[in-house]
């Protein structure tokens, strides 16, 4: 029974990590467009597309701003 002393906290911690990951992804907008994300994954970017050195076009999503 002594194993419970660390098994239960370990299980709960792992669960909490999962929950935190989910909430982070949710707030980060990862679930905003599931359909679109599926397409983007298989879409090969054309090498010449928007890259004209315009920095603003390549900024990462920053939804907390």
């Amino acid at each position: 029974m002594t194993s419970l002393a660390w098994l239960v906290p370990a299980a709960l911690t792992l669960g909490l990590i999962g929950l935190a990951g989910f909430l982070w992804a949710l707030r980060n907008g990862q679930f905003d467009d599931l359909e679109g994300a599926a397409w983007r994954a298989i879409d090969d970017p054309r090498p010449d597309t928007p890259a004209d050195g315009d920095e603003a076009r390549h900024l990462p999503i920053d939804r907390h701003a």
Partner: peptide
């Protein structure tokens, strides 16, 4: 994945271009 991404309205202005 190369994608064109939106810069949201700079509310906090945190380092946004």
């Amino acid at each position: 994945m190369e994608a064109t991404l939106v810069v949201p309205p700079a509310v906090g202005g945190a380092g946004s271009a």
